[in-house]
Design a protein around this nucleic acid. Structure first.
Lengths: 146, 146
DNA sequence: TCTGGGACCTGTAGTTACTACAGGTTCAAG
DNA sequence: CTTGAACCTGTAGTAACTACAGGTCCCAGA
């Protein structure tokens, strides 16, 4: 468990990034991370660049980008393309999506809060929450849920 | 295409609810919808109750409940259990989740907006968005993303 | 130097909630 | 009665992992 600062085992990378070992291997399999050098016994050894790249992926994933988008972002970062303009485009489209979801969630929070409030203090057989879900009321609004 | 008001084909149910035909059959397969009566030729025929039940499922899904939770909700609605108390419990737990997601998304929106703004108007080779993703900056914050 | 057991390996299958065929049958309008 | 849209079943694919099973490797302690 004493890997040098420049060569880390997959377990160390996992601990440092908070990304599961299986997920790291998965990212390699789908081509997001390059295949690292191996020990004579076949164990993966990662350097600092790999750590940076993995952090990039994780950060982008946390921001809700799909793996395909992350792939595009990485190839831009790797130097293909005019960078900034394309990146802004990708991020801008993503931002629109995020704003839509945000609206939906806000509406949802209102509905749930309201439901729970009306529910509280009753063991009545006709639960207002179930009722609301069955009858609709304010639950709908934004369409397009195929 | 002239099904009576009480007996609808799966296609009609699909149009009325906005739920895809395949998804309706899927809900039947996983036990969320009861198997409907069939025509002599084997076509499904739905009544108004099935429509109500499907709408319940869709609304609950739209509110972000998992199918397992929907199943639980439906069995409560179907009469097992003390109803209100349990329903409130399920909804309350769900509300916590929703509030968490809401916070995350709000933070995410700020970061993305900021990134896009900094990106705008530059064809510089060092894109600040890519930079931000690589270096971290304000992108993180709420941990626990395994 | 030996050894025990934790960390690592590959490959495959499972997860959630659908979606998309392929290949065949039924229904109803004209 | 024909025709073609809508229906049927069953299987496989999707995203993005996650979880085994059944092995091999590595290294700290005795």
């Amino acid at each position: 468990m004493a890997d040098s600062p420049q060569y880390m085992t997959i377990g160390t990378v996992s601990k440092r990034t908070g990304c599961k070992v299986e997920t790291i291997r998965y990212y390699e399999r789908v081509g997001l991370l390059p295949a690292p050098v191996r020990s004579s016994g076949g164990h993966r050894h990662y350097d600092h660049d790999a750590l940076k790249r993995l952090n990039f992926i994780l950060r982008a994933r946390r921001l809700g980008f799909t793996l395909d988008t992350v792939r595009a972002l990485l190839s831009l970062a790797d130097g293909e393309g005019e960078s900034c303009v394309e990146v802004e485009d990708i991020a801008g489209k993503h931002l629109d999506e995020v704003r839509g979801k945000l609206e939906d969630l806000a509406a949802l929070e209102r509905v749930l809060t309201d439901m729970v409030a009306r529910c509280r203090g009753g063991t009545m057989p006709d639960c207002p929450l179930i009722e609301a879900l069955f009858e609709g009321g304010a639950a709908g609004r934004r369409d397009g849920w195929n």
